[in-house]
């Protein structure tokens, strides 16, 4: 659907923190400490190369990951081109690019364990 108004409304939904898998969240908090500095300003999303072309929102991926909604984050993540613009614009010095790489690493290692 063409986003005619330039903004959209998120569906109302509830999050079940207990059911969610926080393994990735903990892993990222440990490997990319700067991810805790995020204030959710959305600067990363505004400049994102991939986000410019498709509905990919790196701020949101970050948020999903932190809530433990790993599955959604995983799917989204494949769209990133690792160009690093998000990291450069971040006013808080969050290493978003490294965070993405670490999420990918995490997914890869865990996939191997599952297989």
């Amino acid at each position: 659907m063409i986003n005619f108004w330039g903004y959209s409304i998120s569906e109302t939904r509830s999050i079940n923190y207990d059911k969610n898998d926080k393994a990735m969240t903990e892993y990222i908090a440990a490997t990319v400490p700067s991810s805790k500095l995020c204030i959710g300003c959305g600067g990363c999303t505004a400049g994102c190369t991939a986000g410019n072309l498709t509905d990919f929102n790196i701020r949101k991926v970050q948020m999903l990951m932190k809530r433990g909604e790993t599955k959604d984050a995983k799917e989204q993540l494949q769209k990133c081109m690792l160009c690093g613009k998000c990291m450069l614009v971040c006013p808080r010095g969050v290493e978003t690019r490294k965070m993405i790489l670490e999420m990918l690493n995490f997914i890869k290692t865990n996939q191997k364990l599952e297989d």
Partner: peptide, 16 residues
Amino acid sequence: RPDTIRVVKDTYAYVP
């Protein structure tokens, strides 16, 4: 450096 991104048919298919 390891190649971690799983490449599938529609990887980056969104590029116009």
